[in-house]
Design a protein around this nucleic acid. Structure first.
Length: 619
DNA sequence: TGCCAAATGGTGGGC
DNA sequence: CCATTTGGCA
């Protein structure tokens, strides 16, 4: 493999990097903390740096780069960007995991090295305890002095093995660990517990740690502002004094997860622990200058020392790019919003999925409020957090089973679809574990798929595209693969309830999608959320971007008052505002309540006007 | 029935 | 941290 000399290496897929990004990219001798505001391209920077290290041989085979993200989307996105730029033998040495997937893989691989009583059986189960579960535990065990809200944090901070004496809180943590292992046939571990097990594992087993360090001399950390105490402690146990070189990226103005356990000062701790150099990126590639100027007013309130970003996107719209829209009644508000969006979408100024309605909380309620008015104008809302059956739409769409069934159904619904055909072939190859080099079996597979497509087309022609047909169509697709074969291929579906959750969700969402569709093809588009206006909470919108955002309910009292302790609400507002590439609007409704004063005070000096919405007079 | 205090849920994510 | 719901009690 030919290597590029470091001085000759050029970024790929973008014209250039900003000077600070070059500096952070070339810093390979010590850890760097890359802080950057919204739209600075932090993830893209990591992808470029990975390509640089792999292509120049600064990270030579067999050494690897370990990239750690929080969300699966982010982890996948990062590895796709590297795969696009590097040949397979290099891309293979870029290992992009979520924090939890990485930790679990270590527990699964080195389970035997864990000491009693913490060694889990091979078939331990992952559980996701909610606050109420902790409350119940503390209640039934009589730990009445321990606050359930802080109990998870207590588990996070407690190194194993847990000492059984001490404060009530410590005894509660010890009892909790014991309780999870009580029934050896059904050991239930949360990801937090898996994290603690890995911390124990590498602390007790220098040889495992040594192997880890030899494999991964380079470590990337995405969205570092969200790092939890447990995660940070694990990183320290693993890499403190090891000589591993970190590249962490993040934005402390977007730190909105402290309530869920994120460290309030992850950046400072990181600098201290790993002697990191801090480098701030300055460009904003997402928003145009008029929005960036307003963003900077908000950012300065969060951090008075923040540098003004350099806007690098073009303004493509006329008129107001930010305003507060005022309405009298909620009906008027819903109707005017629908009308305004219709007028943007109809002439093709903007794609429906490039418009987002953001809320602070309770997206379901807002969906109920808006959906009728939107439907009346032929607009559909996609609330990805909505539960269908027993699964959220966003989770359903990310499931392997869903993707497989969707592709098969698409093949039956459309005349020709090479992308789906190839993807379906890949699915089948994987499910049936067929060697890509085995041409005879490949041919057989193609013939079978061909036959299925003919039958599926026939089936869908016979079935009217109405909700009552959903189950039969889904069943036809599933029967082609075979439930048992599928469950064998994906360990995640081996437990019946886990399979049913996805399978029922698939049928339900398909059924629902058929309510508003003229054809099977339309229904499948609807299923995937094509052509729909996004509706979500601010927290869900983190990391995403939209042409236009409309923040619904500036009068919502769930914007808790801003106190010196709780800057998080201001950060949330910053996250919402910075999702917009072109325009950001806010709605107020007299019927609902008073506007949140601190937000209005914040926006006024930025020149954001409050206007009585007059869209409906233009009819 | 009405009052008050306590409990609960909401902003999230992971195999 | 706030709004809403629940439960106990008069």
């Amino acid at each position: 493999m030919s290597r590029v000399r470091p001085e000759n290496w050029r970024p790929q897929g973008v014209d250039d990097l900003e000077p600070r990004a070059w500096e952070a990219l070339r810093q390979t001798g010590r850890s760097v903390l890359v802080t950057a505001g919204a739209g600075a391209g932090k993830t893209e920077f990591l992808a470029q740096k990975a390509s640089y290290l792999l292509q120049t041989g600064l990270c030579p085979a067999p050494k690897r780069i370990l990239a750690i993200s929080f969300k699966r989307d982010a982890a996948r996105n990062l590895s796709e960007r590297v795969a696009k730029r590097c040949p397979p033998e290099q891309a293979r040495r870029f290992n992009s995991y979520t924090f939890d997937a990485f930790a679990k893989s270590l527990v699964d691989r080195f389970r035997a090295a864990l000491p009693d009583p913490y060694r889990p059986p091979a078939d331990y189960r992952i559980v996701m305890p909610r606050r109420q579960d902790y409350r119940d535990f503390l209640d039934t065990r009589g730990f009445h002095g321990v606050n359930a809200d802080q109990f998870e944090r207590a588990i996070a901070r407690t190194r194993l093995p847990v000492v059984h004496e001490g404060s009530e809180r410590e005894r509660a943590v010890a009892a909790y660990w014991q309780a999870q292992y009580d029934d050896q046939d059904d050991v239930q571990l949360s990801f937090l517990m898996i994290n603690r097990l890995v911390e124990l594992l590498i602390r007790m087993n220098p040889s495992i740690l040594k192997a880890l360090l030899l494999t991964y001399p380079v470590v990337f950390l995405d969205e570092f502002q969200d790092t939890t105490f447990a995660q940070f402690q694990l990183l320290r146990t693993a890499f403190d004094g090891s000589g591993a070189v970190f590249t962490a990226v993040g934005d402390d103005k977007q730190r909105i997860m402290v309530w869920a356990g994120a460290m309030p000062d992850a950046f400072g701790q990181f600098e201290d622990s790993f002697a990191a150099e801090r480098i701030s990126l300055i460009c904003n590639w997402r928003s145009h200058e008029d929005l960036v100027r307003i963003q900077h007013v908000i950012a300065s309130r969060i951090d008075p020392d923040v540098e003004e970003p350099e806007a690098r996107a073009d303004r493509l719209v006329d008129g107001d790019v930010a305003a507060i829209w005022e309405f009298d009644t909620e009906d008027e508000e819903s109707d005017c919003l629908a009308q305004w969006i219709e007028r943007e979408v109809q002439p093709g100024n903007v794609e429906p999925h490039d418009v987002a309605i953001l809320v602070r909380m309770r997206a379901d309620e807002v969906e109920g409020e808006l959906a009728p008015a939107f439907a009346a104008r032929g607009l559909r809302l996609r609330n990805a957090a909505r539960i269908v059956g027993d699964i959220a739409i966003q989770d359903l769409l990310g499931e392997d089973l869903t993707q497989i069934l969707l592709r098969l159904t698409r093949l039956g619904a459309s005349a020709r679809s090479p992308d789906n055909w190839n993807a379906a072939l890949r699915d089948l190859q994987f499910i049936e574990a067929i060697d890509p080099a085995d041409e005879a079996r490949q041919q057989l597979l193609q013939d079978r798929l061909q036959k299925f497509v003919r039958e599926m087309r026939h089936t869908l022609r016979e079935l009217d595209p109405v909700p009552e047909s959903a189950a039969a169509a889904a069943q036809a697709a599933l029967d082609f693969i075979g439930t048992e074969v599928l469950r064998q291929a994906f360990p995640a579906y081996q437990r019946q309830p886990d399979f049913d959750r996805v399978w029922n969700g698939f049928k339900l969402l398909l059924q629902e999608s058929l309510q508003h569709s003229e054809s099977w093809s339309d229904a499948l588009d609807e299923f995937e959320g094509l052509g729909q206006i996004a509706l979500m909470t601010i927290h869900k919108s983190k990391g995403l971007e939209f042409h236009t955002i409309i923040f619904y309910g500036l009068d919502n009292q769930t914007w808790w008052s801003l106190t010196p302790d709780r800057l998080e609400e201001l950060n949330s507002f910053f996250v919402a505002f910075t999702r917009a590439k072109q325009r950001a609007f806010f709605t107020l409704c007299a019927e609902r309540g008073q506007p949140v004063a601190w937000i209005e005070n914040l926006l006024a000096p930025a020149g954001v006007r409050r206007i009585a919405f007059e869209g409906r007079h233009g009819e």
